[in-house]
């Protein structure tokens, strides 16, 4: 049994199932992070004082650059598929994966520096929301890396069997990846700069 519109677009909606699905998923993600950002605002407005300069702005800035670059390589991975250049696609997808890993490595050094000085989540409300927001964001990075690892490994053979659907999968992964990137672009100023 075949499910219609998994690969081709439905004419009257102009969408494939997967594309609509990933956008709906992102809508729910907006609500998830929206609730957490609202929590941040309410806690900060209600706090008698709010710490400044507790985080390493340089590490945060480097991570911002890393994530933005990974979004670019993600788009290139999809675009080279559309231009039928498998080698370039592999190169760009592997780069995205490595940049994501680099982001997490940076994050690890950041976390362990805090842990070393006893700055645990229970230390203050600021650190509590910092760890929760960045931790959840880190889990999203990890989730994206798992998907990319699948698409680089066992999932890659779909390219030969069904190139259109494989390109759709890369596109959906890209949409998710840009969202994760976007969340960080909000997180960086909110937590590190403001």
């Amino acid at each position: 049994m075949n499910i219609p519109y998994t690969v081709d677009e439905r004419p009257d909606t102009g969408l494939t199932n997967g594309k609509l699905g990933i956008w709906l998923f992102l809508a729910s993600e907006v609500m998830l992070f929206g609730a957490l950002f609202s929590t941040y605002i309410i806690l900060r407005v209600g706090a008698p004082e709010w710490p400044h300069g507790e985080l390493n702005i340089w590490l945060g800035a480097i991570n911002t650059i890393i994530l933005i670059s990974s979004s670019v390589t993600m788009v290139m991975a999809w675009a080279s598929l559309k231009m039928n250049d498998w080698g370039k696609h592999r190169l760009f997808l592997i780069s995205t994966f490595l940049l994501a890993a680099l982001f997490l490595v940076n994050k690890y050094f950041e976390y362990s520096a805090h842990f070393a000085t006893g700055e645990l989540p229970s230390h203050s409300t600021f650190l509590a929301i910092y760890y929760t927001l960045t931790g959840l964001h880190g889990l999203h990075i990890l989730g994206g890396m798992i998907v990319m690892a699948y698409l680089l490994g066992p999932g890659a053979k779909m390219w030969k069997e069904n190139s259109d659907q494989f390109a759709n999968r890369i596109e959906a992964t890209g949409l998710y990846w840009h969202f994760v990137d976007l969340v960080w672009i909000f997180l960086f100023p909110v937590l590190y700069l403001l």
Partner: peptide, 11 residues
């Protein structure tokens, strides 16, 4: 349905 005429699962 898909251009290659192949089911996504390979069948």
């Amino acid at each position: 349905m898909d251009k290659t005429g192949i089911h996504p699962g390979g069948r």
